[in-house]
Design a protein around this nucleic acid. Structure first.
Lengths: 302, 302
DNA sequence: TAGCAGGCTCAACTTCACCTTACGCTTCGA
DNA sequence: TCGAAGCGTAAGGTGAAGTTGAGCCTGCTA
C-alpha cells in the first residue's frame, strides 16, 4: 500500500511548486522530501515530478496521483474532525479561501455574522485566485472556497467536490461622471465604446477574458490601455477620467458613488457567477458558513 | 494528521472481528496492533473499540472512523493502480465478492467469459453474504461485489459506492411433482398453502424475511418445518416430497427439471434484486467485468 | 474450586526507517 | 566567473514500530 506521508509530500510539492518550498511549509529539510519522493517514484516505477530550475512540475502520472492524494488527505482530516465531533469536541477552526474582490466585499459581512453566531470558531482567510483552490479544498487545507466564473472562462472540473452557485453578479459598464454614454437615453453597446481607453486585467485574467469574449461576440476590438486586476484601482482610474471599465455590481454597491456612473451593457448582460466549493461531507461549521454566505450574497445586490 | 497505517489497523480489526485475527491477517503480532490501536485512541481522545471476550466490537466513534478509513484505503489502492496504469502496467488481479447462490449460477459463466477475454487478469472470488461486503469494496479489498435484496429486507446505504441493479430474479413457488397446486389451473395464493411444511432459511436469513413479509402481507402464518439457506438442499427436499419452498428463477434454470414443479405466486410477484457494487472510479477491469455480468444476468432468465 | 484457553495488555529489547547535516552537481543570471 | 537557487547523495543519530515473554481478565469445564 502506498504510504500516506509520501503522498502528502507529493501533494505539498505540487501545491508549493518546489521541493524546497514544500519542505519549508512542512518544517522539514529539502533532502528529506527529496528522499521520500524518490522512494515513492521508485515504488511506483515511474517519474512523478519533473525537477528543474525554478521548481518542480508534476508529470501526468504525478497529476493523477495528486488527485487521489488530495482526496486521501481530505478524508483523513475529515475523519479526525468527525470522530472528535462524536467525542463532543467542536471544530475550532474553519479555513476559507476567497478571490480578492470577494474578500473585500462579499466575505467581510459574512465573516462578521458568522463570528457573532459562532464565536468559538477561529476563521482563517486565504487569498485564492480562480481557477486555483480546488485541490486545497480536496486535501482539506481549505474547508471552503469562494470562487467565480467570468463569461468565456470554463469552470474547472469539481471532481468529487460540491459546488454551489450563490450569486450572479452583473458586470456593469463604469464611466466617468458626465461621460456621454452615461447620460444617453439608451444603454450603450460595446460598438459605441470602441474608441475608449479601457481599464481591465492583463491577458489571462478572468475579467480580461470576459471583456475580450464580449468584444468578439459583438465583432469589435477594444483597446485596453491600463491593465489592473484590482477593481478599486479601476474605479479610481475611472474617477480620474482616464478610461472606462467593466466592474461587478457588488463592488459598486460597496463604493461611494461619486465621480463615476454605471450602466448595464445593451444586448449582452454579462455577469460573473460566484460559487462556493467544499467537500461532500464537510466538517460541521461549513454548512452554517455557506448559509451565511448565501444570505450575504442576497444582500449584496439589493 | 491521522496515521493511515493506524487507520488500516482499525479497519482490519473491524473486518476480522478481533485484534488477534486482524494481526494474523496482517502478519503482525497482536501486541503490535494493540499498541497501534491504543495510540490511535489516545490521539483522538476516545475509545474506538470495545474489547471483550470473543473479540472486539467498534464503538460509535469507531464505526464513523471505519467509514472514513475504508474510503482512505480504497483511494490509496486505486491511486496505485491508476498510476501504474499510466505507466503501462495493467492490473493483474480482480477480486470479486458474491453471495453463495450467485457464485454457483450467475458468476461461473461470467468468470469463464471474462477469463477468455482477459486471460492475464487473475480472478479472486470470495463468498460474501449480504448485507456484508460494502466495507470491503470501499477499502479496496474487493473490487466488485455481487449482492442482493430480498423483498422486505432494506438495502444498505451505499455511501459513495456505485450500485447498479443487474437482474430482477423472480421467486417461484417450488412444489413436488404432482402436488395439487402444481397442476391447478390458477396460480396459487399463499393462503392456499398454509397447511404446507415450508423449506426456507432460518429467521434473519434474507429469503426467510422475504417469505415472512409475503405471509404478513397476505395475513397468513406459514410453518417453516425445514431450515436451510441452500437452495440446492431446498430443491432436494422438495423432490423428496417433504415440503415446498420459494426459489429464485435463475437457480431453477440451472437445475435439471425432474421431480419438482415451479409456479409463480398469485397476487404478489416477489423477486430478489441482484446488484453489483463497486467504487466510483474503479480500476480498469471492473467495468468490463460489470458488462460481462450484465450479459450473464440477461441470459440467466431467458 | 482449580485448571485451562482465548484474548488483550504491559515491559524490555531490537531493528530499521526517517530526518538532519554536510557536501557536490547543475543551471541561470549578474 | 562568481553566486544563488534548487536538487541529489552519503553518513550518522534518533525515535517509532514490532517482537518476545509474562501477566491479567473472563468464561468454560472437569
Amino acid at each position: 500500500m502506498l504510504d500516506a506521508n509520501r503522498i502528502r509530500v507529493l501533494v505539498e510539492i505540487a501545491h508549493a511548486g518546489s521541493i524546497a518550498a514544500a519542505a519549508e511549509r512542512m518544517s522539514f529539510t529539502a533532502p528529506a522530501l527529496s528522499q521520500q519522493l524518490a522512494k515513492l517514484e521508485h515504488e511506483l516505477g515511474c517519474v512523478l515530478v519533473e525537477r528543474g530550475r525554478g521548481g518542480a512540475r508534476l508529470t501526468e502520472a504525478g497529476r493523477v496521483l495528486l488527485g487521489y492524494g488530495e482526496r486521501v488527505l481530505g478524508e483523513l482530516r475529515d475523519a479526525e474532525t468527525a470522530v472528535r465531533a462524536i467525542a463532543g469536541e467542536a471544530p475550532r477552526r474553519l479555513s476559507l479561501g476567497a478571490f480578492a474582490s470577494a474578500g473585500k466585499v462579499l466575505v467581510p459581512s459574512a465573516l462578521a455574522a458568522f463570528g457573532q453566531a459562532q464565536p468559538h470558531v477561529r476563521l482563517a482567510l486565504f487569498d485564492i485566485e480562480p481557477p486555483d483552490g480546488y485541490g486545497l479544498v480536496a486535501s482539506g487545507e481549505l474547508d471552503l472556497l469562494i470562487t467565480h466564473r467570468y463569461p468565456g472562462v470554463p469552470l474547472p472540473d469539481a471532481g468529487r467536490l460540491h459546488r454551489e452557485q450563490i450569486l450572479i453578479d452583473p458586470l456593469l459598464l463604469v464611466l466617468p461622471e458626465g461621460h456621454p454614454a452615461a447620460t444617453a437615453d439608451a444603454d450603450p453597446h460595446l460598438a459605441d465604446l470602441v474608441g475608449e481607453e479601457w481599464i481591465c486585467g492583463a491577458p489571462g485574467i478572468s475579467n480580461r477574458t470576459a471583456l475580450d469574449s464580449a468584444a468578439e461576440t459583438e465583432g469589435v476590438h477594444l483597446d485596453v490601455a491600463y491593465e489592473t486586476r484590482d477593481y478599486e484601482v479601476t474605479l479610481a482610474l475611472v474617477k480620474a477620467g482616464v478610461g472606462i471599465g467593466f466592474v461587478p455590481q457588488t463592488i459598486l454597491r460597496a463604493e461611494p458613488g461619486a465621480g463615476w456612473a454605471a450602466r448595464p451593457l445593451a444586448g449582452q448582460r454579462p455577469a460573473r457567477e460566484i460559487y462556493v466549493v467544499h467537500r461532500s461531507r464537510p466538517p460541521a461549521p461549513v454548512p452554517a458558513m455557506v448559509e451565511t454566505l448565501r444570505r450575504s450574497a442576497r444582500r449584496a445586490l439589493d
